[in-house]
Structures are given as structure tokens and as C-alpha cells.
Design a protein around this nucleic acid. Sequence first.
DNA 1: ACGCGAAATATTTTT
DNA 2: TATTTCGCGT
Length: 728
Amino acid sequence: MDWEREWERLNPYQREAVTDENKACLVSANVGSGKTTVLTAKILYLHEVKHVSYRYMVVLTFTNKAASEIRERLVRADPSVTPEETENFGTFHGVALGLLKKSLPVETLGYTKDFMVMEPDEELELAHALIAEKKLKIKYKNRLRKRLAEAERVSAAGDFGVAGGQDDLEILAGLLTEEKLRRNKMTFSDLMKNACLLMAKEEGEEERAANIQWVIVDEVQDCDGKQLEFIDCFMAEGAKLFAVGDPNQVIYSWRGSAFHLFYTLKTRYQAAELSLPVNYRSCNEILEAARCFQQNGGALEGIRGSGEKIVVKNHYDSFQEACYLTDRIRELQKQGIPFDEIAIFYRLQSQSKVLEDVFSKNGIPYEVAVKTGIHEIPVLEWLLRLLRFLADPADRAAAVFVLSSREYGVGISAKKAEKLAEEGWAGVCGRKEASESGSEKAAVPGLFERMVSFERNSAEIKDTNAFYEYFDLDCSLKPNAASYGDDKANVRHFLDRMFAFMNAKDLKLPEGLREFLNSAALYGTSRELLSEADGAGEACVKMMTLHASKGLEFSHVFIIGVNYGLIPLRTKGIDGEDEERRLFFVGITRARNYLELSWYTNPDTFGVMAGESRYIRMIPSELVQGQEPERQTGTASLQELRRQVQMAKENGERLEEKDVEKADGMKEMEEKTPNIESASAEILVRHETYGCGKVVEEDDTMITVEFDGYGRKEFIKAFSCLEILNGQ
DNA sequence: ACGCGAAATATTTTT
DNA sequence: TATTTCGCGT
């Protein structure tokens, strides 16, 4: 490979980081400063110049996406790398799983080598089953997942008893651990915990860990305690550390990432501190604005020069905004900006709904960045349970789910399925008594029997078709159902993936299935497991939360709802507020060329204040291209109509609109709003389900509409989806 | 089983 | 600030 060429591309700061010789080196990498480039270059440098085998490096990332990006770049620069050499390149959890499977003595903890990864939903189900079985008293059962995670963090931090549980949460946690061990399963956090535990033990460590000479970490600022400990295990064996991260992009501290992490690492390993100040991504105006939200004082230098000013806009409400964005995106597209270079960021997932509605009505192709995982597709969720049962016939909950599923099961109640599963158990244990409960079995189609006898027959099932036919899946997927086509495609695609995985690893069915499920648990959120039918294709406008925007970049970025109460979100303490600021920083630094911020005059969500967020006023005005509030054309929302009426009436009698400082702008507006009936004789509206109707009464919060055929209906204004028909 | 006041919680999400 | 849930009283 051509190391010289790679070297040429680096700036002096990047070079310094790549060649750093310290035992531990912490690189404070600013946004858009070529973090991944440095990471890849470091790996290549160690290999090419220092002659360190890839095998002696551990490369840790937070997400699968980051892991595959590094691997891709590595292969591009050095096509000779093999997957075997880079076994320890991956996510923290992936690498931990690999170590546990290959070299760590899991037996000493009571596990066997073929343990399985337990997905979060499975753990939650198990917890609920245990609560029912042991009659535990647990408060806030619907927030159990959060409470358990919290309890685990607290106990990991060593504050025993501080949790001071008023319920049986701690007992439950204990039982859960026991049960997981009994079932030979580990959750994501168990993977980290157990890997640390076993690596810290002395026996056998010299042979294994002493080989690791370098630990290379991406996005260190997101590490939690366990991940830090994992790194520490390698360090204890004499490995060197090269970690890259950005303290300004700590936006997941609510998930347990340690905020003082840079400081901790610096003192623990006397790490050298370097920085990558040069931002290659954004134009000056955007960087200038970003600096206002930087908390960690490192310099942020741009090299791109000036571009467009930042645009700040004010919309009446989110509906108006969505209409405006529709036009704006069309306009941009006419100027040659492709859809997939445009992104819209917001604080809350729920904010995407209005945009989705308006965009799909107006034919703007969009994609909401939600994790389109397996679990959101019912048929795959069902299949997954089936596979889980096949991998572990002791998993009764999985069997019950499969059989009693309304959509794909055999149409029996959960209770009956439970009973059957229990009897089936007896059947499996002592097969001779099979004829005993003949009447029960005859009533149930063959699905269950096939599930139970799968293990015996699995050797003959070598591909998707064989599997599909063995279970007569056409029968389960119900050819008459509307979703049959999609379901079948999804199932077959998933099975294809499974068999491809097994063939690639040269595994047969029973073990191969377990391996595949483990891998699906860790990498399953990626789109690869889903059918290509949905997703792939034309360029789309991307819509996502500010959190989800981290690590991405776009030419044009719109951040919407920059109001008090949303950005920043109303938070508990000062530290939470700091994180909101970092979140905003992350958002604005995604933009390469154009950034537009908008806020609502009349937010339609409770708890959100009218008026621009303090954050907008923190941006120096010379960077901002001022803009008058947009006058609405075309379809008017109810609120907009009200505004127009008000404007007409108070013509000349100017409102004190300069008084932006006031947070109670919304209240003020409502007080000054005249009753709509005094200004307009008859207003016709349309409702999604009731059709057309006439407004008969309206006050500040409620509106009453008379519909043909439905009579009078009352709506709360903030929630009503009424379209004005004669608003102009 | 139901009603009431007090208390707690809300948002972001990868593996 | 609004909604949900808990726990205690009937």
C-alpha cells in the first residue's frame, strides 16, 4: 500500500496525532476536523511504519456504522487486510462478544461457550415474568426498563444501598442475573461486564491480552464506566491508548457517559493531549455561530472562507412551517441541491409528524431517521421469536408468543399456548408418552410439533426454501392477508441472510442459528437484515432529531422549533442545560453551506414558549440574515386565519412586537385576539373524519363546528386538524 | 373495586 | 405545567 500518499493528505495537527509516541494520547477532535481520517491513518501508520500487526490492535467504536466506516477506509488504503486480522475492530460490544466467545474463560462464570446475547426487549419480558412468578412488588412497572438500567448504573458505581429501593427492584435485579445465567444468556451490558471481569482475572491473561499493543478508541466522550473499564483492562496489560473524541459533543450523558472523562483519562494514564482544530466542513458564518455554543475552549479554525449568512425565520406554528419548508425545499432543488443534501433537525421525535403529513401530501421525498429495526416489523418479530425458540427450546415465552400471535400464530389464546408449551415440554423430555394427550394435539395444527422436532430434523434444512417448507410458512403468513406479499418478502430475505451468514461461517443449523441470532442482536439494527423493497431508491430529504444528527453532515440544514421549552428543552438543573447547548452545537455544525433556524410565534405544543429561544439571540446579528415573518399564501391554518383577522381589525394600531423579550407572548396574543365571529360571518372547515362543517363558536381554547350529518363537535384548538376552506 | 390527594415523571437512544 | 401512577382510605 502507498503510505506516502496517505501521509500527504494529513495536515500538521493530524500528523502530530498520528505519529505520537506516548503511552496514552487523547485527541480532542473538533467537529469536521477529520477524526476518522486520523483514526484510519493511525492504524495504517502503526502497521506500515511501526510494523505492528493489525492483530495486535483493538479498535473500538460506539456504533456499527462507525466501525464499518473505519474498516471501509482501511480496506481502501490497504486492500490486503483480512477479516481475521481485524477481528478486534468493532463496537465495544462486538469486540467483547468476540473475546468472550473465543478466548475468555466464560465457564468460570457459569456460562458455556454457546451462550446467547439477550436483547433488551427479551430481558424486559423476562423481568415481567419473574415479577409475576415471584409476586414481587415493583413500582412504576411501565418504566421498568429505565429503572433497571438506573439501578445497574448505580450499583456499578459502587453506591450500594444508596438506591434505597422502596420496592423489590434489587431483588428483581438479583433474580434476573440468576435467571440469565441459568438460561446461558447475556445482555448487552453483561457482555461488557463479564468481559471486564474475566480480563481482570489473572489466569491465562498473559497469553491473550499481552498481545494487544494498541487500543484505538473513537468517540471516547461517549464512553460509560464499563467501556472505560474495558479499555483499562487492555491498558493494564501494557497496551498503548490512542483515543479520539470531542468534549463539545457530549450529548448522551443521560445514558451514563462520563462527562469528566477527558479529565479522568488524562490523569489516569498521564495522557498527552493533542487537538485537531481545523474544520473542513462548514463555511465561516456557521463556524462563527458554532463558537458561541462551544463549551470546551479549544480553538475551532475554519479554512473554507465565507459563505451564506445564517437565516433565522419565524413561523406562526409548525403547520405553517411545514408548508414553508415544502416550498423552500422545492426551490433549493430547482437550484440544483439534491434532496439528500438537505436535512431537517428537531428536538423531539414527535415533531416529525406534521412534516411527514405535509411532505407526503406535497410529494417531497423524505426519510425519517428512525431505527427501522426488526422489531418494528411484526412478521419479522414473529419470525425472530420462532428462531429464538429453535435456538433455545427451553425458551417457553418465545414459544407462547409464536403460537398465540394473533397475526401469524395458530389462533389459540396465550393461556392455552402456555399450557401446551408446558405439555410439549413433557413431550420433549419423555417422547414415549407422545400419544397420551392426543386429543389436545390434534386440535392444533402442526406448527408446534414442527417447532419441537426441529432439532432432530435440522440437519436436512440447508436453505431458505427448506426452512420455509418445513414450517409451512405460507400457512402461517396467511396468503389471504393484505400484508402477505410484504411479509413473505421480508421473511424470505431474512432467512436468506441467515443462511448466507451460516454458509460464510461454515456453520450448520443448530449452532449457526445461535451465532446468527447473536450477530443479529448486535448488528440487527442495520438495514441489511431488512428487505431491500423498502428503503433503497431515490434521494430523500432527511429528517431526524438533533441527537440522531451526530456524526452526519449535509449541505443545507434546517433546525426547527428553536423556541424556549424545545431548544433548550425545559431541563432540571444547570448541567442538563449545558447538554442542551452542546446538542444545539452538534446540530449547527452538521451544515456545510447553509443553516436556517426557525421558531414559532404560536407553538402548538404545551410547555413550549412563544418567541425565539435564547440560543438564537446568542448568535451575533452580523452573521444572521434577518427575515420578516412569512406571510402565508395558499392553505391557511385556523390560527393563521385568526392572525389575519386580527391584523385587519387592528390595522394601524400597531402591536408592540419589538417586545420579544417577553416569554408570555402567547398569552398576550390570545388576550388581544378578537372573537372570530365578529370579524367574519361564516367559516367553513374540513375535518379528516367528519368532512366539511361550519364554525359556530370559538373561544381561546375551544372551537365548535357543526358538521353535516355529524352534528356539533367540540375541538381543542391545539389538537384539532381543521382545514380552513374559505379563509381568504 | 373506586376515589382522592400526593408524588413522581416527562425528552434524547446505541448495543 | 400536565399527566400518570401510587398508596391509602372507604
